[in-house]
Simulated scan of single mutants.
Amino acid sequence: MADPTAGSADPLPLYGVVPPTVTAFDADESVDLDATAAHARFVVDAGCHGVFPLGTNGEFPLLTGEERRRVVETVVDEIESVPVVPGVGAPSTHETVANAEHAADAGADGVIVVTPYYYPLDDAAAVDHYRRVAEAVDVPVYVYHIPSRTGNALSLSALDRIAEIDGIAGLKDSSKDVPWLGQAVDRHPELSFLVGSDSLLFPGLEIGCSGLVSAVANAFPELVVDLYEAYAAGDEDRARDLQSRVYDVRAAMKRGPYMAGVKTALSLRDLDFDVGPLRRPLRRMDEDDRAALESDLADLDLP
């Protein structure tokens, strides 16, 4: 069994369940900061060990720079008991550095930096990008590797060079490339690794990840916290059973439009806040898909 502890180079340290919290919108798609804060509070109150605003589930590419800054400030002000590590990545190093500096000044505990996207990136450019971000801030920097969305995969040799940069504390991997992740963990035990797919929560812990960035945890944080805590306590059988349950929840939430499941599932829970729609061109489930999701969740005995 792997020990789910953070890397020695991670001063936070970052571990456990760290949901990529949502950005809430009003009906007119303007940012609802109160509901955004309420969602972050919801997952923390359910036992999550950190929050990651402005990740993929936070719809960060669809926000203006000012909206991103206000989300960071809002979540930092709301959450004090666990690390707040917002996403600050952008296609340009210039904008990424500015976002990172703002987040650090706002009181974020660390920053998560997605690989630059749209333009192809070679190893030298990737290393330079992360060096400039790390040199600009005094908070830990975590690499965010999601080549299916950015179009840019990091080679293991590039990661070797990035890991040597002062201030680089870890990596969140959403590649679903288990051999790549396994080798990265093996080569860099000093870094904290967070697995970024609900399909690989238990396997990620098994190969040495310290944390789970789970979309399912945005809607059902109790389930993913139970999985992590079972594993950390040495109960692998229970952790495996809970991973199977996560597979079922993930399948139910994947019906309908891309990324519609989390906000639709949240709307089916008896909560005192409403995260609203996704921002166009993304959209929530239609009534048929919503009803099917509600039925699936009831079959799974989930609220």
Rank of each mutant, 00 (worst) to 15 (best):
E287G: 01
E236I: 10
L278H: 10
V97S: 09
E222K: 03
P147H: 13
V143A: 12
I162Q: 06
E294L: 00
V51M: 08
E59Q: 14
T36E: 05
L62A: 08
A169Y: 08
S244H: 09
R284P: 00
M253S: 07
D173F: 12
V51P: 07
A265S: 14
S199Y: 10
G65E: 04
L268H: 08
A239S: 13
L282Q: 07
K172L: 15
I162A: 06
Y247K: 03
R240S: 12
R280C: 02
P19E: 12
R187S: 13
I162F: 04
R149P: 00
G7D: 15
A158Q: 07
T21A: 04
I168V: 15
E67V: 01
N152V: 10
G182K: 15
L293V: 01
N152K: 08
A219H: 01
E101W: 01
A100K: 07
G107F: 11
P20R: 00
T264S: 15
P11M: 15
T23E: 01
D241R: 15
L268E: 13
E294W: 00
R70N: 09
G151K: 07
Y15V: 12
G208W: 06
H145K: 11
R131A: 13
R279Q: 03
P277C: 05
D272P: 04
F25K: 02
V31T: 05
D241T: 13
E66S: 06
F273I: 06
D296M: 04
L54D: 05
A37F: 07
S199H: 09
D122T: 07
D289P: 00
L212R: 02
K263R: 12
T21C: 07
Y144G: 13
L278M: 12
S197H: 04
A125Q: 12
K263M: 11
A35C: 06
A232K: 14
V111A: 12
V72Y: 09
C209E: 01
E29H: 00
Y119G: 05
S214M: 06
Y119F: 14
R149W: 05
L300T: 04
T5D: 11
K254I: 01
V249H: 04
P303D: 11
G89A: 04
S192I: 03
L156S: 11
V114P: 02
W180P: 05
L205P: 05
A108M: 09
I79E: 14
D34Q: 14
D77H: 10
D299Q: 08
D177T: 15
V43G: 00
D122N: 15
L227D: 02
V275C: 12
D226I: 00
V97H: 04
L200N: 09
S92A: 07
I168T: 14
A219Q: 00
A239F: 13
A35Q: 07
S81G: 09
V216R: 02
P116M: 04
H94S: 10
G107W: 09
T21R: 01
E67G: 03
D272G: 06
Y130T: 00
A90W: 02
R280G: 05
T5P: 05
Q183A: 15
D288N: 01
A108N: 10
L156I: 09
K176G: 10
S155N: 06
F52D: 08
D10N: 14
H188C: 09
L223M: 01
P53Y: 11
A219S: 11
L191H: 05
V224L: 02
H129T: 03
V114T: 14
L200K: 05
S199A: 13
C48R: 03
D272S: 14
